[in-house]
Amino acid sequence: MEIIQSVLNGILLGGLYSGDLVIVSTFLCMIIAAQVTGSLLLALVITICFMAVIGFLLQNFLINKVLDKGDEPPLLVTFGVSIFLSNVLLLLFGADARSIQSPITSSNVISSNLVSVSAVYLLNFVVAVLVIGALHYVMKYTYFGRSIRATSNDVTAAELMGVNTKRIYSYTMCLAMASAAIAGLLVGMTFVFYPSTGTQYLIIAFGVVVIGGMGSLLGTLVGGVILGLAQLLGAYFFGAGYQLLAGYIVLLIILTIKPEGLLSTAARK
């Protein structure tokens, strides 16, 4: 489910806080569901709206302001925001591991001696495919999607064609945050989480995008599968401790050999 969220990261190149925003939405979902609504679905809807607004404000009032000042300032601003968020979470919720409980989390769709597929994993997969499908539609067939692609290809050219690129960045951020909210709930239902888990998701999300190629939706799917496989094989051959390491090393190798991604549009030129 990191895949969903990574898709938009590729477009908002340079954001370092996606991982922490996923965890923020995980906590938000948990709190809203437990305290206000009692229903996870309703909590998710509220979280999506809330995160979208937050994302817009962040992009519009913080990052767009430093966008013209070179590569480093936006990077450092997002880094600062990320550290800020994870420490606020730590302060509010403590360092304890938590999880979101619901009927789905403990049941299996198929359970036999040979295979068992848990309902959450199936849900993750279905949601991932749905979100990627929806994003694919938006990116390919709407005016908004076309202007996003134009902006990520060439900012100057897009502006000459009448696209307000900064506005586009802000709206893309809204979209990214909405999917971060969905990813957040799924993460919370699938794994235990604590305030500092964000880093891990940032690296995974970034890795998936890098392996697949920035801005390529199919590449994102492929990247997710490659990273997942690398981790599985690493754990199988070298022991469970090396699961993460295998993923990181594959990521570093791909970054070295083909920094623009395996299926990037740039390679096809």
Binding site: T199, G207, Y248, L252
Partner: peptide
């Protein structure tokens, strides 16, 4: 930036 971070995590 991310590459150096990943190397450290690894």
């Amino acid at each position: 930036t991310i590459g150096t971070w990943i190397a450290a995590e690894a």
